[in-house]
Nucleic acid binder design. Sequence first.
DNA 1: TCAAACTAGTTTGATATCAAACAATCTTTC
DNA 2: GAAAGATTGTTTGATATCAAACTAGTTTGA
Lengths: 159, 159
Amino acid sequence: MNQAKPLRSEIEASQGGEIVLGKLDDYIGFHLRLAQNASFRAFQRKTGQSDLRPGWFALLSLIKDNPGITPMTLSRASGRDKSTLTPLLRDMIRDGFVEKQPIARDRRSYALFATAAGAARLTDLSRHAAEHDRRLDQIVGDRKAELLNLLRRIAVEIE
Amino acid sequence: MNQAKPLRSEIEASQGGEIVLGKLDDYIGFHLRLAQNASFRAFQRKTGQSDLRPGWFALLSLIKDNPGITPMTLSRASGRDKSTLTPLLRDMIRDGFVEKQPIARDRRSYALFATAAGAARLTDLSRHAAEHDRRLDQIVGDRKAELLNLLRRIAVEIE
DNA sequence: TCAAACTAGTTTGATATCAAACAATCTTTC
DNA sequence: GAAAGATTGTTTGATATCAAACTAGTTTGA
């Protein structure tokens, strides 16, 4: 349908601010990406000045709250591929925010711990992250619980 | 708080499936990323076999529904930086799915149109995309309208 | 009118990300 | 207890993405 040559009026409309989303407007995946992208960029702008890499906050937080966690478990908890974590962990260890210890019963892996410097840095980052998320809280208002539930279900149930 | 050395029980717990999300569990941004990432990966797996690049679907759909749209407008509509679009558009034009035409009144820019091949490809992609989004629809059930509203508001209002 | 400010698109550089292939180690199965 | 299979972490290769710097063209305003 609508295979005909576009009308002049349609073309004119496309130049202005009147964008037709079409079927896209009904796609959860599309809006999910738009929202996440906008949120991620805003967070990055806020923390970028504070010499923080955006991926660090979630990882450091998880390591602090789960002392001895392994890279593989961390990968699942943070929703990122294990190979993505390799260079991030290397840098966090190099910079003294995280330490690794061998695991006796599995020599392939290692246990991760936040150092005192890591905990301090996390506190610092938490200020920015909390500020950012407070903005998100404002936007969603009293429907936050429901939103979180839906997002959790999407993350878990999609395969 | 909880600055003390981690208990052995905590360490053990971190190895298993019991992950403590801590403050993260209350962060919209965190769950947004998790959900988007999972959804994106699932979509990619579904369409990857069909020789489709995931970024193409939204762009092609927008070009088809907005004949004559410029890269800049497309950038805003798709939520991606203009420089991200450059190589994507180049490839879509090279492969004959999209055509560009000069704009008389602004020689810096150009107008984009979907070709017949592009429309055909879009139809093909739509099948996969619709299938994927039907899965998302199942997960969110009757709260879809509300979810879309929240996601739209986040994308627009965060700055 | 024409210089200054702005805007559109491209190029370049830096991250982030996944997936596949690999090596080392564990676990299972016979 | 040894071979086969599974799991963990790393390396490598391919995209996607943004931001900043750049070029070319347009708009503004003095």
